[in-house]
Design a protein around this nucleic acid. Structure first.
Lengths: 213, 213
DNA sequence: CTCAGGCTACCTCTTAAGGAGTAGCCAGGC
DNA sequence: GCCTGGCTACTCCTTAAGAGGTAGCCTGAG
């Protein structure tokens, strides 16, 4: 059985070096490549034969979340674990929803981190324990978007969201509100951005769970 | 400042004794009462002046989840932490959604458990670290749920419908169920026809309103 | 055995959806 | 006056979704 081939994506060379040293303490794992930003990562992810990608979130050229999304939409199903300093719930949720296979914080103990990386390579979903409460809060609240995100919406966007919560298409909404379908699309796009959601289906589900009506 | 008054609810006397010993190692906490099933717990929860309730899930007379719900609907806002052996995702999610302030597993290290109980008493939401991955999986989008009485649908179609109720795209569903996107489309098409709905958005909204999860 | 139903996978084709950008109009605030 | 935010309406472009069809494979009922 061959080694686990890992790509590390981070804009700090020293940090990459540290991770490389840590990972290669295990003879079963090898750093197959490095990238210093998301764009590079997307480029090389397809060509290198990888088993696991460790990627930072905050990077200059293209952040880790965007890189993750592009890889997934490029059909790359390599296991991808975010390795970052951000313990913001939005980041965690966004990464997991975008298809990350794990979310680890950089302040973990090295031995622990190494163990988690091995688990990730074996197919497990790995999460820093500190984030458990955050995820629990999200689950218990039944939300994907922050609860107060509703107040960020304009009244027109709320009209649209209510229509989405009834399963209506853009065309139906347009007829109902007596505006063009194109304008409905604009409102849908804007409210999706405000709520941090990716599709009308997510918006509809979220709205129903919020009791929007 | 007075002691934290705790009610322990579990149908195993020996386990209750163990918890009592552990908890009372801390002079700031005291076991104010014990109950051996959910019904008893609901009875005494109102009369004892409690700061925290530690409750098992699996009990003969009334299980912990039902007891939790009854207490909450009785207006009892005491902090309630589930202390159980079940690491089933359904149980975790159900408890948190029903208003639990924490979910701890019985196989935790005693010292760790004691620390978590103290945190819970202080108002924190506490979760056993082992459950992080489960919660993450739920947040990221997919998980099986108890069977349902939507008799017209096949089990696979129910899988798809549950995924729809979480707002997932065909591609995400395909990845999660390890089938092709084309096959997902087939299932979506068939379930839409069976349910008499016109789009995945309608199906998602309908499913959420039906309580499909 | 045959047959039906369920799951899988592919095909083609059309429409729906969504991102990014530009822009006009109108209200309210400074 | 100017400027901002909200609503409207386009453009161009890409991807997602859904309606048809065919078909192989497997399992359980008869």
């Amino acid at each position: 059985m061959s080694q686990t081939r890992i790509l590390i994506v981070d804009d700090h060379p020293l940090f990459r070096r540290g991770v490389r040293q840590l990972v290669e303490m295990d003879p079963d794992m090898v750093i197959a490549g490095e990238a210093s930003n998301g764009a590079e990562a997307v480029d090389v992810a397809g060509s290198l034969d990888l088993d696991l990608i460790l990627m930072d979130l905050n990077m200059a050229k293209m952040d880790g979340l965007e890189a993750l999304r592009q890889m997934r939409s490029n059909g790359i199903d390599t296991r991808i674990v975010m390795l970052t300093v951000s313990d913001a719930d939005d980041d965690v949720v966004a990464a997991l929803r975008a298809g990350a296979d794990g979310y680890l914080l950089k302040d973990m103990e090295p031995e622990d981190l190494l163990a988690r990386i091995k688990e990730a390579a074996e197919g497990k979903l790995v999460i820093s324990p500190q984030l458990a409460a955050i995820l629990a809060g999200i689950v218990s609240g039944g939300r994907a978007a922050p609860a107060d995100a509703l107040s960020a919406l304009t009244s027109r966007e709320l009209d649209i969201l209510r229509a989405l919560a009834r399963g209506m298409s853009n065309k139906m909404i347009a007829r109902r509100l007596d505006i063009t379908e194109g304008t409905v699309k604009v409102h849908v796009k804007n409210l999706l951005k405000k709520l941090g959601l990716r599709s009308r289906v997510e918006a509809a589900v979220w709205a129903v769970n919020q009791g929007v009506s």
